[in-house]
Amino acid sequence: MYGINGRNGAPTTVCEDVSATAKIGYGRVSTRDQNPDSQRDALTEAGCDKIFIDKASGKLASRPELDKALDYARAGDTFVITRLARAARSLKHLIELAESLRERGIDLLVLKQGIDTSTPTGRLAFHMLGAIDEFQRELIVEGTHEGLASARSRGRTGGRRPTLTATQVRMARQMYDSEEYTVQQIADTFHTSRATIYRALSDEGDFAYVVYRSSKPKVDNDGRSYGETGQGDHSRAQYDSDRMYWPLDDAKRHRAKAMVYVTDGIVTRIRAIDPNGQWTPDQRANGTYWEIPVTAPLTHDEITKQFPTLDLTLGDELPRQRGKQREHLAL
């Protein structure tokens, strides 16, 4: 004999306890050729009763398996992930996800970061994340108002027209989500650059500035060392090399939150960008290149706490695509 009260409307036998709680596991690989086995193994070891895995890249792509996992979960269940970045597109999305789970009576367990919202300590961690999110929004709003006032005082009332229309952005997103086109093919379709497509798909949010290098030290025409100096991550020479000089539009500076240095395909250092630091333009480049106020190299724990949605940490592999020296990674 069957009923109709199972999860998602599935029939249940009379002897089945539909009120029993479950652990729902969710994982995601950040590139289309990564293997999700390590996440699946961790979720299985954690005792997950059902596991959902997405193959999508960070903030840009849709996540059908995440939607299925959240739809499957019921009050009293525990939603299990290995890292915060696996489930959240951004810090804002992370807060919204946690609040939605709380309202539905579902606990959140993050295996690698020791967060369990069934405990007071775990709930406090999310309250702190919410406070950080609110603080960041206030800084952005304040900076925007100051920038607009400054522009108006100089007689400027608007920016340049967007390269892509809203319809073209929607089409580009559909092409990307289909996994049948590369970013270059999408850019060629709309007769624009890859950078424009990346900006359109990332919604122009906060980002980490990723720099690709080789391990061989280099010196410019003025005798300044740049790249990997070979003098140690915490040396003054490496600090100077890491902070100057980088091309970045003035309007984007307030959205740059971290610098990620990739050496020979491996993430070797991650530095935060000091929100109160001084950005100094390179006078030789008419202000288009900047000395960026970066912090000391972050530890694994500091990276996790400061950038919970950054899908990278020290030692991760990040091979450079041919010809690419820098890119913006959405947070």
Rank of each mutant, 00 (worst) to 15 (best):
G3T: 13
N5C: 13
R7C: 05
S19K: 08
Y26K: 06
Y26E: 04
D33M: 14
P36G: 11
D37V: 12
S38M: 06
I53Y: 07
G58H: 03
E65I: 03
D67H: 14
D67F: 11
L70W: 08
A73T: 00
A87N: 08
S100T: 01
S100N: 08
E103L: 10
T121G: 15
R123H: 02
F126W: 06
H127V: 14
H127E: 13
G130K: 06
A131I: 14
S150M: 12
S153C: 01
L164I: 09
A166E: 11
Q168H: 11
Q174I: 11
Q185E: 12
S193K: 09
F207R: 05
F207Q: 04
Y209M: 12
P217N: 07
V219L: 11
N221W: 02
G223A: 05
T229L: 04
D233G: 07
H234Q: 10
D240N: 14
D249L: 15
A251R: 13
V267F: 06
Q278S: 10
Q278N: 13
D282A: 12
R284P: 03
T288N: 14
Y289A: 00
P293Q: 01
A296V: 11
L298T: 07
K305C: 06
P308T: 14
D311Y: 13
T313Y: 06
L314T: 05
P319D: 11
Q321S: 09
E327N: 12
L331E: 02
